[in-house]
Design a protein around this nucleic acid. Structure first.
Length: 153
RNA sequence: GCAGAGGGCCGGAUGGCCGCUCUACCCUUCGGGGUGGGGAGGAAAGUCCGGGCUCCACGGAAACACGGUGCCGGGUAACGCCCGGCGGGGGCGACCCCAGGGAUAGCGCCACAGAAAGCAAACCGCCCGGCCAGGCUCUGGCCGCGCCGGGUAAGGGUGAAAGGGUGCGGUAAGAGCGCACCGCGCCUUCUGGCAACAGAGGCGGCACGGCAAGCCCCACCGGGAGCAAGACCAAAUAGGGAUGGCGCUUGGGUCGUUUCCGGCCUGCCGUCCGGGUCGGUCGCGCGAGGCGCCGGGUGACCGGCGUCCCAGAGGAAUGGUCAUCCCCUCGCAUCCUUGCGGGGGACAGAACCCGGCUUACAGGCUCUCUGCCGCC
């Protein structure tokens, strides 16, 4: 029911990428953890969308057929190690629930934690991420219309 | 019962749903999947000490420099830690606190105040003598401002500290000048103790001030760096070595005196070796190990037996979320002990591993002991 906010390019290449995998009815994108520093630096230069609990960064990285990747950044400004761990873990859980349904394959995402991520109700975090994903995909479409086409190739 | 002292321990519980990671077994279409099991702390923190481990350096040892430690005995792998004593200080007491070797090895310092701060001295005083303005007087004398000379350290005042304290005697006034007690110093002394030290005895009228966390002296200890240590596997690229082929009709260099001719190097392609970057694997989880019982010891701790295997990530797993319960708190209601609703539940996250120390910490449990009050 929430899938209608996605761009039209999404379902096409998602089904084309894994035709042989399985015949599950819902379209799910596999999410891989982003771990290398250069990837984080690249994502920081891409499109961004801000909500109270975090900042979402996105860059179309590689071929459209591959998985989406997602990383997390929580700086030392956010507090001590316990607070940082908790922020990252809540964001991880949000990403785990939302990204497979709404993320664009072949794109790298980075969630930069903010202090509000510590206390914001979890349901709001979920809708925050859906909204941010929608915004960021609209933004990258309008700013670079040739982008998704070339990624489809 | 009230007030207090010293330890020990815990630091949310249970259950859904959805995950992460390690591991054993099974399945697999080699992508992965299933089942079982493990998965943060008392401080994981600060990184302040002590070790293990690894690499580097080094002939043994000593000395010097530098740094650390500093009552005695014990514990320990070791320590700056711990335990038990000793000494000093505080508290009615249980107990608590202490950078606690040497000040006749030497140097240095002792601010302010004060007359004087380390070697004796004397500001105000006190006392004696002389001179003397003057006064009193029974014409014997007495008192005496001031000045000079001398004796004192009782009293005053300063200070963190002023050359033992208190009392009696003594004296012109005083003073260990004498005596008693306390204190202090010394001793081939005695007693107890492994010792630090304590007690007794004798001698000495008795200062030898303090600071060594200023330098220093003495005794003892210490090589350096750290898991990003270190070991192994190993793309790409640059450059290196070996070797094979081609080229060497053309070049350049070089060797044999020169020409011819020939060798070698330089060029291109390939193979191998070495190297070690990104990356990967190991190091890396059986240990100065946990628990229980027994024994020794005042204790730290030690010994024996049994039993258990108990986190291993790497932009960094150990969680997210919901419900119920528990505790605290606020508001409303209330049949007065319950109901409803809201908020909150500390400090804090393993990163090679141990032993300590230090610091942070909502709330709570428990043991032993002390003082006072009450009751029997």
């Amino acid at each position: 029911m929430a899938g209608k906010s996605l761009p039209a390019a999404g379902p096409a290449d998602a089904s084309a990428s894994r035709p042989e995998l399985s015949e599950e009815p819902s379209r799910r994108t596999r999410i891989v953890r982003l771990r290398k520093r250069p990837d984080f630096l690249k994502a920081a230069k891409g499109a961004r969308a801000s909500v109270p609990a975090f900042l979402l960064q996105m860059v179309p990285s590689r071929e459209a057929g591959s998985d989406a990747r997602c990383g997390f950044t929580v700086t030392k400004k956010m507090g001590n190690a316990v607070a940082r761990n908790r922020i990252r873990r809540r964001l991880k859980e949000v990403a785990r629930q939302v990204m497979p349904l709404y993320a664009e394959p072949g794109c790298d995402y980075v969630l930069v934690g903010r202090e509000a991520a510590l206390t914001r109700p979890f349901l709001l975090l979920l809708s925050d991420l859906r909204a941010a994903l929608a915004r960021i995909q609209r933004a990258s479409l309008s700013q670079n219309p040739g982008g998704p086409k070339s990624s489809e190739r």
